[in-house]
Design a protein around this nucleic acid. Sequence first.
DNA 1: TATGAATGAGCGTTCATTCAT
DNA 2: CATGAATGAACGCTCATTCAT
Lengths: 204, 204, 204, 204
Amino acid sequence: MSTPGKPTAKAAARALAQRERILVAAQKCFVVHGFHAASMANIADTAGMSAGLIYRYFKGKNDIILAIIERQLEEARADIAKLHATSDLVAGIAEVFGQWQANDPNVTSAALFLELTAEATRDEEIAVATQASDRVFRSLLGDWFVRAVADGGLGVSQDQVATRVLILQCLIEGLAMRAISQPDLSVDQVKSALNQFLPSLLTA
Amino acid sequence: MSTPGKPTAKAAARALAQRERILVAAQKCFVVHGFHAASMANIADTAGMSAGLIYRYFKGKNDIILAIIERQLEEARADIAKLHATSDLVAGIAEVFGQWQANDPNVTSAALFLELTAEATRDEEIAVATQASDRVFRSLLGDWFVRAVADGGLGVSQDQVATRVLILQCLIEGLAMRAISQPDLSVDQVKSALNQFLPSLLTA
Amino acid sequence: MSTPGKPTAKAAARALAQRERILVAAQKCFVVHGFHAASMANIADTAGMSAGLIYRYFKGKNDIILAIIERQLEEARADIAKLHATSDLVAGIAEVFGQWQANDPNVTSAALFLELTAEATRDEEIAVATQASDRVFRSLLGDWFVRAVADGGLGVSQDQVATRVLILQCLIEGLAMRAISQPDLSVDQVKSALNQFLPSLLTA
Amino acid sequence: MSTPGKPTAKAAARALAQRERILVAAQKCFVVHGFHAASMANIADTAGMSAGLIYRYFKGKNDIILAIIERQLEEARADIAKLHATSDLVAGIAEVFGQWQANDPNVTSAALFLELTAEATRDEEIAVATQASDRVFRSLLGDWFVRAVADGGLGVSQDQVATRVLILQCLIEGLAMRAISQPDLSVDQVKSALNQFLPSLLTA
DNA sequence: TATGAATGAGCGTTCATTCAT
DNA sequence: CATGAATGAACGCTCATTCAT
């Protein structure tokens, strides 16, 4: 009231920063322990705050999970945007595969992605969020496929888009499982395989 | 000791049957609730026995999870065997996709598969088991690719096998995620996509 | 199964005994600390068991409260039955007042009665239970008023019953508050006052 | 110190106003949620101030409860004063009963009264406060009973006062419980009952 | 004076595991 | 062999209270 505007903005900024701190900590904990095994105390410790404080910024544990899903959607959107910029889809996918294999708790985790998807079969809220996220992702991929080559797209015909997107997604998401189940699979092998089979998917 | 030979064999058979009862119940519970949310009481109820009795046949909950992984290996082997028998790989994969989408607690579950794989990044024992299982699976698939056409194989050259197996696995496992994240994807669409892209993978 | 009937009956008896142990402990704790301030750990300690065990016999804390209400109803029924037997209503009420003033955690507590009634304005389940209990109590009292003198009743006319029951209840329940707020009020003073004003209530 | 006299008086007045704001808010919250279930955050919100500020005016939650008791004493004194003014005691009591049944959070609440009394059996400070309050109330009622009819009193003899006050209080406080446990009891029924039994209490 | 972010202890509850029967 | 009562540690979460701003 005394200094209008500013203090509120400052407080809002702090709140956002705190939410971010919590989400980063939660992501690490979820990657390391899994959704259910990671405790709020775990997350609080990792975030360097008391457990109770988390509830000022999130309604509960489930709320954190949903926020993490949205984070992943935004990261995915950013990745898609990069696809537009680069002509080298193979290198992009291979890089993501490398990150998944390294299992760095700070970036998108393959394990988290799998567990999240599995959880969608049990939690209605999570199901809604993941399916919505997935729809957006497919739509973005589809736009890229269908756009004219002159505009940075692939110029694929409309009746082919769904099929191509499906296969491409299977390849990418399948690599998430390979990153875990086949730790001795090298990035180069992945590149080589993709170089051999992706072109037929990407040509009009 | 008192009645040697026969009774022991009988007891061992009973023990195996009990383990099987428990595993079947556990699989159902895990599919429905997930590994961590499924309680031992749940499993005991489903198996129609007391909670305490389970500990005569398994060291603990983790021990059951490990056994479930081995069960899945067996089932995977059976699936591979069916691939040999059928000439129609596309129909086979599409059928599995349909089962995954239906999420029948009695057959291999996509969600369980994902959760299990995710868990492998956290539990060393599970990692070892899943990777061993995966190696066997790849080996069986590889054999089929490399075997002569006359012997029911595909006659693919040795230096192409790893690549082909990799792509095929990505497609199959990618469909596990599609079954969950894209519930409106029809079996026919999957068949159509596979029919378009599998041939290039399966020809020598 | 092996020894049918008996074991189940034994188990049921034990379960009932455990429920009773818990209810007795809960009543003590509720009297001493109040409904909300009494913790499940408190009750478990008082009952001489672990906190977790309580949940085998009660759904939760609210379930215990509801069971205590029913207990009180049964005790009230027993008290009413005694009224039938004795011609000395004044002595009976005065005795109850004495127990209330002593605040013995083992018998019906005035404080518990008040808190329970207050809670009924907030918890729908408790409201339903207390009102049902109250209806039964009033009905029993009314029967006694209306019954012929020859049958141990008071022979009060039908159109007078509701009024008489109302006043009598106010006097009894009012004494519950007096027992707390006026600790120096003697049982004899209560008797004297009741002897002076009850007769007009009890004559046809 | 810097501006002696006046500013201090102003500050004291402000402090009293703040205390009043808090007490009004607390009373509302206590009526709705009960003493223990009402949170300091609740009270702060209702009072339109921050939670921390309350601690400048009250030592803690218990301190607020004690202050509320004193408030009720003030209200009770006011009610007694009204009894003096009206010749119709029955109508006055019936009106209070109606307010109790309506459970208006802005006036004296029956539920709060009961909970407060119950709490007196547990908290020594509350016991002292309620008993002192009760003594004053009885004294005021007694004065009215004993005062000469010519002075607006009832002219009851000294040795009858205690008994009459006791019965009258039981009737009034008993109606507090009736208001909760017998929600279908009408104000008219109460009036009718009081009209029948009060006269014998009020005549010399 | 006033705020509200932060703490930390304690809550009700669940559940893997043990063991007397 | 089989039971299920019992434990105890941990969980997610709430809230009275404090204190830097």
